[in-house]
């Protein structure tokens, strides 16, 4: 059987990649994709712990099912917020409100 640490390493690499996407990107859709990649990393870690720990088996799987269900709802909410942002600022650029405020100050 593959060691637990390998699964955790992959999970943490995915979490790091998602964090990179959330911190460096300006496009809101990229940021959402980054958040989803982080969520996938967390669910891999949970699944690995669920299988390798005999007392955590069912709880871990139930938590993953919960995570996947909530991810669907929060993605829908995030997309609607993006649409509202696009109507308000005319762009999905995260730096748009700041640049508009700078223009007003000038």
């Amino acid at each position: 059987m593959v060691p637990l640490s390998w699964y955790l390493a992959v999970a943490f690499i995915l979490i790091g990649l998602g964090a990179y996407g959330m911190m460096v990107k300006r496009n809101l859709i990229r940021i959402l994709i980054g958040a989803e990649i982080m969520g996938n990393g967390v669910s891999i870690a949970l699944a690995a712990f669920a299988v390798y720990s005999p007392t955590f088996t069912l709880t871990g799987q139930a938590l993953i099912i919960l995570m996947i269900s909530v991810a669907a709802a929060h993605t829908a909410l995030a997309l609607v917020l993006m649409l509202a942002y696009n109507r308000r600022y005319g762009s999905v650029d995260l730096g748009k409100p700041i640049s508009q405020e700078e223009k007003l100050d000038v």
Binding site: K25, R26, N27, L28, I29, R30, L32, I33, E36, A72, T75, A76, L79, M82, L83, N86, G90, S91, V92, D93
Partner: peptide, 18 residues
């Protein structure tokens, strides 16, 4: 859902926002 979001937000395809 994300693909539909991209279709509804044509300005999301602007590569200068990367």
């Amino acid at each position: 859902l994300i693909i539909f979001g991209v279709l509804l937000l044509p300005r999301a395809q602007d590569s200068t926002l990367e």
